[in-house]
Design a protein around this nucleic acid. Sequence first.
DNA 1: GTGCAGATCCCCT
DNA 2: GGGGATCTGCACG
Length: 184
Amino acid sequence: MKSAIPREFYRRDTAEVAQDLLGKRIVRRVQGIRMSGFILETEAYKHLEDPASHAFGGITERNKTMFGEVGTAYVYFTYGMHFCFNVVARHPDTLAGAVLIRSVVPEHGAARMARNRGIGDSGRLSDGPAKMTQAFEITKEQCGADLTGGELYIAEGFRPANVVAGPRVGITKATQMPWNFRMA
DNA sequence: GTGCAGATCCCCT
DNA sequence: GGGGATCTGCACG
């Protein structure tokens, strides 16, 4: 079993962490089954300088995890039916920040993921923020979970050859900030 | 392939 | 009471 990435990795600028998470592994253990996948696309959400961020309006019951310890999970519920998975990451000089995991390529446990999704294994089991959480069985139960170990953690993967930065998807504010990162 | 409607509910104003 | 860091299925072509 690969070891988890240490907490210090997440104690940096949120956008830098978002970029560096590309190619890393997400590892999930459920009922003795191991699932894993490589991170293909991420987005950074910051604090006062980012109107698109949940943290922009200040700390609330929903977003308080974004203000908590780095290297933990921020999971939120949206559109009445979907969960999205973020990794809390921020520079020590800032109060809040998180990286949304948008797309993951399955490595191990694809059969379980397909079952979780209620579809066949097409190879595209986790290519969206809410698809990813469904495939990896991540719900608000995992909100606040430590990602440096345990049943859900992030481990080393490979170094992407090329990274493209662009505008974030699905937002209406701060649409010009190039805080979406993907492999190329 | 593109485009749009509908599902569905928690949080914040 | 409004809106959302989304996904799916269906229509069209």
